[in-house]
Simulated assay, not measured.
Amino acid sequence: MTSISTKEILLRDFRWDDLSQYQTLRSDPKFQRFYSEEDSAPEKAEELLGIFISQSREAPRTKYQLAVVAGSGDLMGSCGLRIESPGHASIGCELGRRWHRTGTARFATDALLTFGFVELGVQRIFAETISENKAAIKLCQSIGMSIESERVNDRCFKGRTWSTTTLAIRRDEWQANHPQ
């Protein structure tokens, strides 16, 4: 079982008893702004939780979608690191509105960058987000990622097209700011 503790939060594998809180987080209209209708459906939270739990049991493990938990035990959201190909991983974070602008996303992504670069030995971590999701882009830049590319009108949901932005950081770039 994966568990990463920081002084601010706990990242741990999901459990079935997280379902109610996870469904509540994902049902918020602001949370759903940059998700497709399919990804915003009420049953999607249960489907995702099942996937996250199954991934936590895989060996070798390549996907770490972890619950972000407050000191009070409240589920704040999820943050994930996924090995996409040898040496390359993607990262993503989703938090309930209550924890926006609290630093929680930064604490979680910092912890996962350390985990990915130090524990898993990946060489590059990237994130892909809807280009209009300025908060996600700002978060990625705050952890040292740089914009690599933008794909114009490459997604279609909610009756419109969306562009996506890819940001990334290499291990050597991260190490320059995190001497051990």
Rank of each mutant, 00 (worst) to 15 (best):
M1V: 05
M1N: 09
M1D: 11
T2Y: 14
S3I: 12
I4G: 07
K7N: 12
E8M: 08
E8L: 08
E8C: 11
I9R: 00
L10G: 02
L11G: 00
R12H: 01
D13W: 00
R15W: 07
R15C: 04
R15Q: 09
W16F: 09
D18E: 07
S20E: 14
Q21R: 10
Y22K: 08
Y22N: 04
Y22D: 02
L25H: 04
R26M: 06
S27T: 00
D28Y: 04
P29R: 00
P29M: 01
K30M: 14
K30E: 13
Q32K: 00
S36R: 01
P42L: 00
K44W: 06
A45P: 09
E46Y: 05
E46T: 02
L48P: 15
L49W: 12
G50R: 11
G50L: 02
G50C: 05
F52P: 03
I53S: 08
S54G: 12
Q55N: 12
S56P: 05
R57N: 12
E58K: 14
E58N: 11
R61I: 03
K63T: 10
Q65A: 14
Q65D: 12
Q65P: 14
L66D: 01
A67F: 01
V69N: 03
G71R: 02
G73L: 00
L75G: 06
L75K: 04
M76W: 08
M76Y: 09
G77A: 02
G77V: 03
S78Y: 13
C79A: 08
C79R: 03
G80E: 10
R82K: 15
R82F: 13
S85E: 13
P86V: 03
G87E: 09
G87K: 09
G87Y: 12
C93N: 07
E94D: 10
L95F: 00
L95R: 01
R97P: 13
H100Y: 05
R101E: 10
G103E: 02
R106Q: 14
F107A: 14
A108C: 04
A108H: 03
A108Q: 03
D110E: 14
L113I: 06
L113F: 10
L113Q: 08
T114H: 15
F117L: 00
V118Y: 09
E119Q: 07
G121R: 05
V122S: 04
E128F: 01
E128L: 06
T129L: 15
T129S: 11
T129I: 05
S131V: 02
E132A: 14
N133R: 09
N133K: 09
N133D: 05
A136G: 09
A136N: 08
A136L: 03
I137T: 09
K138W: 10
L139D: 03
C140E: 06
Q141I: 15
Q141S: 12
S142N: 08
I143Q: 05
G144Y: 00
I147E: 11
E148K: 06
E148M: 06
R151L: 15
D154K: 01
D154V: 03
R155K: 13
G159N: 04
R160M: 12
R160W: 13
R160V: 12
T161G: 14
S163G: 05
T164Q: 11
T164H: 15
T164Y: 12
A168S: 15
R171F: 08
R171V: 02
D172E: 15
Q175T: 11
N177H: 14
H178F: 02
Q180K: 11
Q180M: 06
Q180L: 06
